[in-house]
Design a protein around this nucleic acid. Structure first.
Lengths: 148, 148
DNA sequence: ACGACATAGTTCGTCGTCGAACGAATGGAG
DNA sequence: CTCCATTCGTTCGACGACGAACTATGTCGT
């Protein structure tokens, strides 16, 4: 799929782009109807890092622009998966909280995702995945730092 | 950024998604005005695999749906970067050819991309990138096979 | 030869994300 | 205290990608 004369980083980013595309597609296939990968990422983030965070903080954490996060939060709120309240300490801020339905939906989505992913992981030794993680983390950090 | 209790594959795909996002953004920043990453990918594909291919074949190769490729090719043609001609052997088919301007634009884009990417690669030993490639290729193949 | 099916390219409507820009509110420099 | 720059959340318009559907053409079985 990739020419041999590509620089390694170029080839790697090429693979990364394709993998991201396939993985996102596979994830959305098993998610509840209408629940996008971007919605799931936000639910996941709130569960893991704690809720009550501001919209802008979540947007930065998951690498999307603020208007996109406004849209995502509105969709999640319409579904009753999150609630929002003005930040008492910052008149501009808006705090986002998980509802019980939101936690439940996230739990189900994680199970579904793991179920869909398990057969794929089965063909690949877990040790190799673990071994590749540090490099990817460093690469992400380098790209993030170069963002200027 | 990632909870320690995530399965390794989950964490890896998480990193992959963020890296793809940052890399695409960085790429589009150095591309000529209005030239999207998806356009660049097509030019790159035509240079590396040869032109004269059908629209559908290109769409499959770069993992986008055919309507998206129709749009991309129309944009590239409007810019004079590619030309199209009906396939003499298949009345349905449409063959896509690179123009000289297209080859030149691709060359400049590759230089720009390499320039933008070089400082990032500088912080990471090339050997590690090479070492990570086989795993990513296998993972892509596994995801592709699971596409059903 | 003919009919069922698959494939190529396109059009259409929908959706998510982006950049630009805005009003509201905060915080820091003088 | 008073500006002035910054940040927050939002609205708006544009754009790319998608799924569904359509026509035209090719392919295969009988």
């Amino acid at each position: 799929m990739t020419a041999a004369d590509d620089p390694p980083l170029f080839a790697l980013l090429n693979e990364v782009a394709i993998i991201e595309h396939l993985a996102r597609h596979a994830l959305e296939r098993v998610l509840p109807e209408g629940l996008r990968a971007s919605h799931f990422v936000v639910l996941n983030h709130l569960v893991r890092r704690g809720d009550g965070r501001s919209l802008a903080a979540i947007a930065r954490a998951v690498q999307v622009e603020r208007p996109a996060m406004t849209n995502t939060i509105q969709k999640l709120e319409a579904r009753g998966l999150v609630t929002t309240a003005p930040d008492p300490q910052d008149g501009r801020g808006k705090r986002v909280f998980l509802s019980e339905a939101g936690r439940a939906a996230r739990g189900e989505a994680v199970l579904a995702a793991n179920g869909a992913i398990a057969p794929i992981a089965a063909g690949i030794p877990e040790a190799e995945l673990v071994a590749a993680l540090p490099l990817l983390r460093r690469l992400r950090a380098a790209l993030d730092a170069a963002r200027d």
